[in-house]
């Protein structure tokens, strides 16, 4: 489809937006690809607890001094809690990864019929009015919850992992990371509004593996 030449300000706007978007989106994709592998670690951790329970083993190792997250030993309950620590990271960063792949569930009966431009506008407005405020506000309000965990030295009451603040801090970090990803998406779509050639073709066949 031939395009009329763009006004210089549009071309410039598109280039700047796309240039700013690239590192933000790229970061989300790279981190998401890495954290995806955690699903195998989660599986391994769960299987380890099954095996330990089967063998009636409670303490795997004890040592002198305190190690970050593991305290002074490794027990069946450390491994049990490790399961959801890993799962939490997988989920939080997977959210951003799914955003960049557009695999979050949409009801696309109307969306499907919109022009690429219309879709870009829906997403820009949504990210700016819904997603980004949600992430930043909840991240900001979680600050107390992380600080309190850090100051109190919160740890497992089942003889599991210590330093609970580490996983608690993942919540605001993950949400801010998602907001950054959403901001990257806004810039990318904005580039598309400046320069329609940058918009994806209307036939996207993304089918989430739903439920």
């Amino acid at each position: 489809m031939p395009h009329a030449p763009l006004a210089p300000w549009r071309e410039r706007g598109a280039a700047v937006s796309a240039g700013l978007a690239r590192p933000l989106v790229g970061l989300g994709l790279v981190v998401g690809r890495i954290t995806s592998w955690l699903v195998l670690l989660v599986m391994l951790a769960v299987l380890t607890t099954v095996a330990l329970n089967f063998l009636g083993i409670n303490t795997i190792a004890r040592w002198e001094g305190e190690v970050l997250l593991f305290g002074d030993g490794l027990t069946i309950n450390s491994v049990t809690e490790l399961q959801w620590h890993l799962f939490g990271i997988l989920t939080l960063f997977g959210g951003t990864y799914a955003l960049h792949h557009d695999s979050h569930v949409r009801v696309d009966l109307v969306y499907h019929r919109l022009s690429p431009r219309g879709r870009a506008i829906v997403d820009i407005l949504g990210h700016l009015l819904m997603l980004i405020p949600f992430c930043l506000l909840i991240a900001w309000l979680s600050e107390h919850f992380v600080r309190m965990s850090y100051l109190s030295g919160e740890q497992s009451n089942y003889g599991g992992l210590t330093d609970r603040y580490l996983i608690k801090a993942m919540l605001p970090i993950g949400l801010v990371f998602l907001a950054l990803g959403a901001f990257g998406q806004v810039l990318e779509k904005l580039a598309g509004l400046f320069d329609p050639a940058r918009l994806p073709s209307p036939h996207t066949d993304k089918e989430p593996m739903h439920g």
């Binding site: 330990l52 009636g56 409670n58 069946i76 309950n77 089942y158």
Partner: peptide
């Protein structure tokens, strides 16, 4: 079992679970 009671049982070789 959780808490201090769990630690007592650990001393006797029990596996305390969550």
């Amino acid at each position: 079992i959780s808490g201090l009671g769990a630690r007592v049982l650990n001393k006797l070789g029990a596996s305390t679970q969550l």
